[in-house]
Design a protein around this nucleic acid. Sequence first.
DNA 1: TGTGAAAGAAATTTGGA
DNA 2: TCCAAATTTCTTTCACA
Lengths: 165, 165
Amino acid sequence: MTDSVVLDAVDLHILRLLQNDARTTYRELAAEVGVAPSTCLDRVARLRRTGVVLGHRLRLDPAKLGRGLEALLLVQVRPHRRELIGPFVDRIRALPESRALFHLTGPDDYLVHVAVADPADLQRLVLDEFTSCREVARVETRLIFQQWECGPLLPPSASPSLSAD
Amino acid sequence: MTDSVVLDAVDLHILRLLQNDARTTYRELAAEVGVAPSTCLDRVARLRRTGVVLGHRLRLDPAKLGRGLEALLLVQVRPHRRELIGPFVDRIRALPESRALFHLTGPDDYLVHVAVADPADLQRLVLDEFTSCREVARVETRLIFQQWECGPLLPPSASPSLSAD
DNA sequence: TGTGAAAGAAATTTGGA
DNA sequence: TCCAAATTTCTTTCACA
């Protein structure tokens, strides 16, 4: 967080292309952006070094892996104290059914995104891993009908450069 | 959805490694899994063809892009009818602040994961894009303190093979 | 299918502006 | 920083088990 990077139009163009397809080659990036491949390499390396780019992730179809039912669980943890929520977070993160976990403001302390095989599997998960735990005061289950990933993550304004610490 | 793939131990091993680092080379996969690089290529190509692998995605740090504040918005759309929710979904997906959108069961019809610059930006987003819309009956804003991605997505059981349609 | 070797392509490194 | 060329490394193909 101590060093500051400035993202110029070239960086943003590269990021947009890579968010579309993270396997775009440096040659293709170079041709598209209008710089040399080695320059693209430099830029991407810098974006990694400065922490803008955290890594590459494989996108999988949960349904094809036998996890066709997804849900969001709103969880109230009581008492909401460090010595309880630390282990709670660790336990939930380690569940094979967990896809993501959020610590939130509001009446529900946590939101857990889970992927399971079927309703019976979800019932087992909720009963065995949530409602049966002393620290879990309440669980609300919301099934996911459909979900969408949204557009690429880019700087807020249309300004040509941005300072990011 | 008509063809069926069977994931054996080699496929699962490859998927686990790629979920850990999507840029692992076929050489490295081969060395790790104990097959030839060309076999890894075949396996991954088949996983792509059958839709198990959907693509590669760049993971970015929203904070480094000037979007350090994230929130989940619980939205009630009334009346909850196709002719309203179609355009609503399209509009929300197109917002640069939107990261993900879920259509849910329960009292809230949609959950929107957004990334904004600061509280003022969030206020603007909620007022201008949500509460000011006739079809939006209610919006509840939950700030995200912290979030975690969970372990790799894998088949439910420890069974050596799995049929995925 | 899976393999190893060869051909092709891409990623890195280097050095000069 | 950027680029172009050289080098190294990976990907892809293909004939064969």
